[in-house]
Amino acid sequence: MNWSLNELDAMARKAARGAGYSWGLAEEAGRATRWLAAAGLPGPMCLAQLLAAVDGADFKDFTPAVSAGRCTADSGALCPLLTGVALCDGALDYSPMQGLTLSNLSAPLLLLPFVAQTFGIQASGTQSSGVPTSERVRLRWAEVQIILAHGAVYLDGVVGDLTCAQAESVTLDPAPAEKSPKGVLLAPQSRAVIDVATRTCLEGFAQRTFAPATEASRLAGAGAGLSDND
């Protein structure tokens, strides 16, 4: 069974909220997961991994800080959502030309949509408005290299590393000027494929945002009570 991207966005948003992220960050989680799925990448699985890892944590400890080109957080691990929005908002002391090293980044693939947004690249391979750029950026960890260039995404790497729970060191830097970057050019997808375990996990987190029903809420909450057989 495949999913519409709107369904995935909504489920990811609710799941992130259920795991304790603020509504604004939950919205970002929805968009980021959708972006990855639309690029044919396993965003839902990475989100499920992240939520399981941060469940119950104090999110303040994940606040990213940059010193001498290295990004870290008090908790010891970086959250890709908090780090991603900080990057995108311009809250990190970072120069695109010099690059950035991120230490112990959980679910590193989830950082990609924020890098793309920072550099104005949509999953569909077109350049979005806002941040016109001719820059070529590269995101690397373990055996994975992702290059954003010419408004497109090129992926080179090992599947296991792509979806790893945490990467010890992730680097974001300018990509070398090559005519055709190394790796597979990602083709835009209109549907999301979500495996059963991922779905179960995300739905479990999303469930936490729903209030248990009572008979009173069934009637009063929606305002019914009259006959509809008329």
């Binding site: 509504w23 604004g24 999110f59 606040t63 908090l82 908002d89 809250a91």
Partner: peptide, 12 residues
Amino acid sequence: AEFLLCHPEHRH
């Protein structure tokens, strides 16, 4: 951006 880094609850 700096305010949001400390106050993610106001992001939306």
